[in-house]
Structures are given as structure tokens and as C-alpha cells.
């Protein structure tokens, strides 16, 4: 950065020593200030994360030492009765299962669609269509989650009832289709980057051996880009686990472990969104919701960490 500024100065300045001296007084201090600001904004990300950690833990920790609370019940019971008049219970197993099942299903739907689209854009389509597709997919990524939720609630629910004959339209299947559509753009753009990163010499070598286009994709590109594609999928998963508004609207919001695709479920995120606003501040219920937040933190953190390692693996190989 330093050298760039100096170079700019040399090309624009008249080259006299006086101007140089002036610069070193005023613009060097300005430069230092800018550097400080940039450094601060870089460090601020760490500060914010630490502050959030501190706040969430501070709100949640008192409940873990309370005698009304058992961490075993929290993790292994499905009985979520935060405002019961007879026996208050805070079991989140059904919510965790809800979150994990909707994530798993949505990835199952998004994987072929996302990777397929990435392969098509990267290898098969012409430059004009490629531009159009990329813009459209970016547009897809820009649709707010509440709009997706609305589509799930009004359109998808009717389609599901008509096709499957399920009694209720808002359910696990609805939520995972909506989530899949939301994570496809992420999978496509990162997956396409991964495919693009495969050197052309690979393709040329395969072509020289007489491989068809399909054989190139199947035998050469997919194995060569597999780490990048895996990272794409994992980032899609991260999106799915953390999504709140769309799943709140499309899943039926019922505390139950699903036994079929068309059962309503509730996720950890939707539960926090629905209940935190009305839980009295500092009450047990409020603190347990923060603890649920920490559980969610751990799940998404694990996924991001794995994704990070995988991406590092890709970079290392290059």
C-alpha cells in the first residue's frame, strides 16, 4: 500500500523536492490515520464476535447453575414446556432434531440442483447464457428470507397438499424445499468457482485421450474439484441451519420429532424467534432461550469450521 501511494505521487506530482517534503508532513500522518482506521475495522470483527459471545454467555450461564435446570433434560428431553402451570420443562431434543432433519433434507434437495447448475454453467453453456444464468442466480440469492417463507406458507403448502395428500401444508417437506432453494445460489457460485479452478490442462489432456464431455465432468473435473464442491455444500448447510424466518413460516412450528416428511416440526432458530420477544427479561425461560442460542452456535460453528478446513485443503492443493 505504501509503495502504491508513493508511486501515485511521483506520477502526478511535478517531481520537485518541495512537494515531496510537504507530502511527508501532511499525507504521511493522514496515511497513518487511515492505516489505524483500517486496522480498527479489521480488528472490530473480532471485537464484535467476542462481545456477542460475552453477551450470550452472560445471559445464559446463570440458568446452568440453577437448581430447576438440568443440562441432561435440556439436551435429551423432547418436552418443551417453558410456561407450564404445573411442571416447567426445557427439553430441546425435538427442536434440535427439527433443525438437523430440515438441514439434512434441504441439502439432499439442494445438492444435485446446485452442483448440477454449477457444472452446467462452468462447462456446458455458452458465454451469453452463462452471464444470464449467473445474474439470475445472484438475484435468487438476494430474495429476502421472509419472502421465501411467504412463498412456503401460501404457494408451496397448497402444492404439497395437492401432490402428497398430506393433511397439513406447512411441514418438514415444505421447509426443506424452501431452504434448498435458498441455499442453491451459494452452492452454485462456490461450486462454479471450484470447477473453474481446475486447470484447463486437465480438460485438454482428457480431450486428447478421446473423452466425451460427460466423461470429462465425471472422471476428471468432479474428482479434481471435490474439496471445493464439498465446501460449497457445507456453506449451504450453514445457511440452512441458521435460517429463521423462512422456516418459522413454512414448517408448522410444532414441537415434535418428525416421523414422516409431511409432519410439522419446529427448529431451534424459529423457537428463539417466536418466544424471546415475550419471555420476561432475565427469567429462566429467557435464559434457556439464550442457552438454545449457544447450542445453535456450537452447531453452526462446527459446520463453519469443517467448511473452513475443507476450503484450506483446496487452497493447499492448488
Amino acid at each position: 500500500m505504501n509503495s502504491e501511494i508513493v508511486m501515485n505521487n511521483e506520477t502526478t506530482g511535478v517531481g520537485s523536492g518541495r512537494i515531496r517534503a510537504k507530502r511527508s508532513l501532511l499525507s504521511v500522518s493522514l496515511e497513518k490515520l487511515l492505516e489505524l482506521i483500517i486496522r480498527l475495522s479489521g480488528v472490530s470483527a473480532i471485537l464484535f464476535v467476542l462481545a456477542i459471545f460475552f453477551f450470550v454467555f452472560r445471559e445464559a450461564i446463570p440458568i446452568t447453575i440453577s437448581e430447576h435446570f438440568s443440562i441432561k433434560e435440556f439436551l435429551t428431553s423432547i418436552e418443551w414446556y417453558p410456561t407450564s402451570a404445573v411442571d416447567i420443562r426445557y427439553g430441546t431434543l425435538a427442536l434440535t432434531v427439527g433443525s438437523l432433519s430440515i438441514t439434512f433434507l434441504s441439502v439432499l434437495f439442494a445438492l444435485p440442483l446446485g452442483i448440477g447448475a454449477a457444472i452446467y454453467i462452468s462447462e456446458f453453456c455458452g458465454p451469453k447464457l452463462k452471464e444470464a444464468l449467473k445474474i439470475t442466480i445472484e438475484l435468487l440469492a438476494a430474495i429476502p428470507s421472509v419472502v421465501w417463507g411467504f412463498i412456503g406458507l401460501t404457494v408451496m403448502s397448497k402444492v404439497i397438499v395437492a401432490v402428497t395428500g398430506a393433511p397439513l401444508g406447512v411441514n418438514l417437506l415444505n421447509g426443506s424445499i424452501i431452504l434448498a432453494l435458498m441455499s442453491v445460489p451459494i452452492i452454485v457460485s462456490i461450486g462454479e468457482d471450484a470447477l473453474k479452478a481446475v486447470p484447463d490442462s486437465f480438460r485438454e489432456a482428457a480431450l486428447a485421450q478421446g473423452a466425451t464431455k460427460w466423461q470429462i465432468v465425471y472422471r476428471v473435473l468432479l474428482p479434481a474439484a471435490k474439496n471445493g464442491l464439498l465446501a460449497a455444500v457445507l456453506l449451504g448447510v450453514g445457511r440452512a441451519v441458521g435460517e429463521t424466518m423462512a422456516v418459522l413460516m413454512a414448517t408448522g412450528h410444532a414441537v415434535a420429532i418428525p416421523t414422516s416428511l409431511v409432519d410439522p416440526i419446529r427448529t431451534l432458530t424459529a423457537n428463539i424467534a417466536a418466544e424471546l420477544g415475550e419471555a420476561p427479561a432475565k427469567s429462566d425461560h429467557y435464559r434457556v432461550l439464550f442457552l438454545t442460542g449457544i447450542l445453535l452456535f456450537i452447531i453452526t460453528f462446527a459446520i463453519n469450521l469443517i467448511a473452513d478446513f475443507v476450503i484450506r485443503g483446496v487452497k493447499g492443493k492448488k
Partner: peptide, 11 residues
């Protein structure tokens, strides 16, 4: 005052 059975859709 007894509890609701789990699994209702809570709007």
C-alpha cells in the same frame, strides 16, 4: 391448567 400435548402447531 394441565399442559397441552406436544406437537400442536403454535402460531
Amino acid at each position: 391448567k394441565k399442559d397441552f400435548s406436544l406437537g400442536s402447531c403454535d402460531m
